[in-house]
């Protein structure tokens, strides 16, 4: 086929290029620029090459934060994905209760991040919080400001409360999209409830579950405001995750070059892990 060459077509692409340039490319390049310099004040800076990167890759406290981050993300995925599927399976399919449950489930998703942190900070307090007081009244020693375990459990519970609904809503829409004939055929074939889940529902949820896993992984890997408000990263640094580590470095210590180098590494880790997830899931679908 003969192709028409028309250079004016670039004019039509130009608006998008400008938007993308200002929204993504220029800020990213600024970060790249910072990451290879030591910036002492707005007028004094030195080129340092890859020094920041080498420095960061050897930083033990950063390794610890990365470790905590991975444990946290995998923990919330392991809880939220099965729990989300289970709740979606139990939801009503018709009648007035559909709307009621959908609204109730969507509510946590509408609460701003640091408000969620504040809610749980009060809710879990052992002196006046409903949850904290109740648990302590049952004879269990629970204190999220004092014990590492308590802090971890509270942060995980908070994230589960905040985000499981997303998984539920995605799975619910996926379940509704399964044609009735599949359920009817399964009834005719005498399939058990488990067999219906295993061979009819789960295979048809893989699409939405891919999205759910990726979204929840990326989001939980970038978690910042909620633990910052709830525990401030403590006790010690036991709930200091990567974002908070970064914020302390960039804003707290105004270590801009180091923070920029770290941002890039952080970004690459998320990109790489998301790619791994995506590949694993789509491979298993093709299998």
């Amino acid at each position: 086929m003969e192709r028409t060459r028309n250079e004016r077509a670039w004019l039509l692409v130009l608006p998008v290029m400008i938007v993308v340039a200002f929204s993504a490319i220029i800020p990213l390049m600024t970060v790249v620029n910072y990451s290879v310099q030591d910036i002492l004040d707005p007028y004094t800076r030195f080129f340092v090459g890859t020094e920041w990167f080498r420095d960061i890759l050897r930083d033990d406290s950063l390794h610890a934060a990365l470790g905590r981050q991975l444990v946290f993300s995998f923990t919330v995925l392991l809880i939220q994905i099965p729990l989300g599927i289970a709740i979606a399976l139990c939801m009503p399919t018709r009648g007035i209760w559909v709307a009621i449950t959908l609204v109730a489930l969507a509510l946590p998703l509408l609460v701003p991040w640091n408000v969620v942190g504040t809610i749980w900070q009060l809710f879990a307090r052992q002196d006046i919080g409903l949850l904290g007081v109740t648990i302590n009244a049952m004879g269990i020693d629970y204190n999220y400001t004092g014990s590492r375990m308590g802090a971890w459990l509270t942060v995980v519970a908070m994230d589960v409360w905040h985000w499981t609904s997303l998984v539920v809503l995605l799975c619910y829409s996926g379940l509704r999209a399964i044609p009735d004939a599949y359920y009817q055929a399964a009834r005719i074939d005498g399939a058990s409830r488990w067999a219906v889940f295993r061979h009819v529902q789960l295979p048809r949820l893989t699409g939405v579950l891919t999205i759910a896993v990726l979204l929840r992984f990326m989001d939980s890997f970038m978690i910042y405001a909620e633990p910052f408000v709830l525990t401030g990263g403590g006790p010690g640094s036991s709930t200091t995750f990567l974002s908070q580590y970064l914020a302390t470095m960039a804003i707290g210590q105004f270590d801009v070059g180091r923070a920029a180098a770290f941002s890039l590494i952080y970004f690459l880790i998320i990109l790489a892990l998301s790619w791994v997830f995506y590949t694993i899931i789509t491979r298993s679908q093709k299998g």
């Binding site: 044609p179 004939a181 009817q184 005719i188 074939d189 005498g190 295993r198 061979h199 295979p203 048809r204």
Partner: peptide, 25 residues
Amino acid sequence: AQVFQFPVIYDTMTVYENLAFPLRN
């Protein structure tokens, strides 16, 4: 036994397992 208008198969299974499914259940 009932056969529907649009083919209903169990994606995760082989053809053999599909055919065996009603008997296995």
